[in-house]
Amino acid sequence: MNWSLLPQQLVIGIQLGAVYALIALGYTMVYGVLRFINFAHGDVYMVGAYLAYYTSMQWFDHTTMNPYFLLIAMLAISMVGCACLGLLVERFAYRPLRGAPKIAVLITAIGVSLFIEYGGKFFFKTSPKPSIAQEVNVLSKPINLFGIVLDGSQLAVLAVTVVLMLALWQFVTRTSTGRAMRAVSHDFGAAALMGVNVDRVVAITFVIGSSLAGAGGMMNATSFGTPLDPFYGLVPGVKAFVAAVLGGIGNIPGAVVGGLIMGVMETLIVWLGYGGYKDAVAFVLLIVILLIKPSGLFGSNLEKV
């Protein structure tokens, strides 16, 4: 345990937590509207990371391009690509099962997840990709703030996350589509009876959730040194799900707080020297929450779990 490393670890934890929060938002929104866990969400995140990689490495030239513009292009392509993927998954896998038993939907979600992972082997090479952290950097040299080193990618992650979350909050609370979304989340059947186009709202939910996951994938790929492979999204996806449950599933601010807690906790465990157990801790936390307070920190969800 090295106390002098703690502040730096906390910054990394918040950065990681921001990525978890972005993925968790997708879980929580889909759960809120359709009441099922979209297991394929982590794989959408994986596709986002790959799209960012291809943007910076193949479609654009990262060595000569303006880094700000490149970052924005990566973000846009990841988000749009993932939104399309989410839309396709919703249309062809989940919509035909509307009203089917919950278990059938759950198994379909697992099937979709496996399909994206193993189908990804078609399009993405199976051998791990180099991380893109080093190639794309907005700042020429890191900022040193009271001994805490902040590099460009960390600042970019935090800034983009804050902007996206504010935009999402505005969308959900201020627009009529956002109101429709909240209505469907509150009562699916009654919203349909009141003239809300439920299919459209569900599709929009998937588009937003998937594009946020794509943004998360892009940011994780640019700032952490994890090599890419088609199973890149499996563990972060599950951790983000834990974050969504921790914050109270169906609750948007809860997902953000849950994500940050998860990220900080994970880096603290590595800091304590139990890095081998860091993935297990997420599951232990999940089991503890579900047994003690299934509604999560902020959830007022009456749904029986």
């Binding site: 099962l97 379909t108 099937g111 997840s113 496996l114 399909f115 193993y118 189908g119 082997k121």
Partner: peptide, 15 residues
């Protein structure tokens, strides 16, 4: 591709 084939079978069976 056996896993991708599994996944497709799973989805089709559910549908």
């Amino acid at each position: 591709l056996r896993w991708a084939l599994f996944a497709i079978s799973l989805i089709v069976v559910m549908l």
